[in-house]
Design a protein around this nucleic acid. Structure first.
Lengths: 244, 244
DNA sequence: TAGACAAACTGGTTTAAACCAATAACATAC
DNA sequence: GTATGTTATTGGTTTAAACCAGTTTGTCTA
């Protein structure tokens, strides 16, 4: 199958803006290995012509592919396909989706789910007005019937609704109210489990746990999630990716 | 000071492509709080006119600001300034730059620096050809005179040069040879220090340590760094950011 | 054969001009 | 007073055209 033909076919099979279809088609075709890593793509002018797209639109798509690390552009020379790099799970997907991707069925046991007013420490950390109505959610997270983590999340009530009972995915719930975090700041460190935590996770007191503090920001820059999670060090690995 | 005047002034004070100057100027002026968070920017057409820039160029800049979370665009409505979100240190900056940013002078004690051929396990992990010449570097990382981490890095010899003795920043060295990683995959978990590690870090055996496995990919998608680092859990926090 | 040079080609930048779709503001009718 | 359309405005998409600055490549010379 010809490269151009493959791209054109996939483009025709989709809806939406031209540039978006182009981008998806290019990603898919390159992912299928139509052009070997290290090989060059045709020149922008030629591709634009063959794909019946303006160079501007083509370049927009190539720019995104370059940002994703699929191709690399070298001024004056050309655009080359980069070797496959394994995909990383980002924590932004949340525990529920994370575990499903690993083939485990995630469950939760709600230990606390209460509505109150935000205290001074959390207000300082999040920048929310002192006394704002918040929902505090403490959950034991399990996968395959085994306790993996203990999570303590504080969320503004309006981001999740006053009727939330803690069951189901917090992120999916926030999604429905258009309040899912767009950016997340995380701080990870290793600590030792105290008596209470060890009892919940079924591990020995003093065993290593991965402590993840997380601040989620919504579209407007306000904090929509302030969470702390303790993962069993022997059962959980955090995988992330950094681009530079 | 007028918003437009401030942007124009900063634009004039720089060199380089118009779009780049525009972007930097906008970032700087917005960072200085010229427009309060929540407030709207002027419309794209007006700004382009006032700043003597085409709307295309202006939009390119705004797109980047939006990706960085400085502004948020809403079709039909306008572009609003987002509240400040704290900056995250990314591990891509490397231990040396990381510690300098925190005001500590980083030092290293080289425990091993040898050239050999890659073994089966590392070859599988990195995808490098079996038997490739590699440099193995084991360093104790200190900040402010205190041991913070033990690092074991495996790097292709051509990425760093056969004459590297382990002193100085590995990333700066790779930079000079244009082999700095562009993307990094990391896997973090919490473990307990064994006898040897505890002795190196000056902690109690069994104490919690943050174990970071890291694969760095160069521009062409080949692995240029395969490292494992153990950080003292009580002295190091890993801060990262995720966009979605 | 080795080097110097020029021409062709590559991606990068910038502009102007249309048009679309979603929103906000306003005027109108009930 | 409220509901309903209409209209102007906003960001989003797409195109075509020109020019710049590097990289190849090929040719021509010493």
């Amino acid at each position: 199958m010809d490269f151009y033909a493959a791209v054109l076919e996939r483009m025709a099979a989709q809806h939406g803006p031209l540039g978006e279809r182009l981008r998806h088609a290019l990603t898919a075709v390159l992912d299928s290995g139509a052009i070997a890593p290290g090989e060059s793509l045709p020149s922008e002018r030629e591709m634009a012509d063959e794909l019946n797209v303006s160079r501007s639109t083509l370049r927009q798509g190539l720019k995104e592919l370059a940002q994703q690390g699929i191709v690399a552009t070298r001024p004056g020379a050309g655009t080359v396909v980069v070797g496959r790099i394994p995909k990383a799970l980002s924590r932004l997907s949340g525990f529920t989706e994370d575990m499903r991707l690993r083939g485990l069925e995630p469950t939760s046991r709600v230990l606390e789910c209460s509505i109150g007013r935000i205290g001074a420490d959390a207000a300082f950390r999040t920048g929310l007005p002192l006394g704002s109505p918040i929902l505090t959610l403490v959950r034991l997270r399990l996968a395959g019937g085994e306790a993996i983590a203990l999570e303590r999340a504080v969320v503004p009530v309006e981001a999740v609704g006053a009727d939330y009972d803690g069951s189901g995915s917090l992120y999916e719930r926030m999604d429905a109210r258009n309040a899912r975090p767009h950016r997340v700041l995380q701080s990870l460190s290793a600590t030792e489990a105290d008596e209470a935590l060890a009892a919940h996770l079924g591990i020995r007191p003093g065993a290593a746990v991965l402590e993840v503090a997380q601040l989620g920001y919504g579209q407007t820059g306000t904090v929509v999630e302030d969470a702390m999670t303790w993962y069993r060090g022997d059962r959980y690995k955090y995988v992330g990716e950094i681009r530079g």
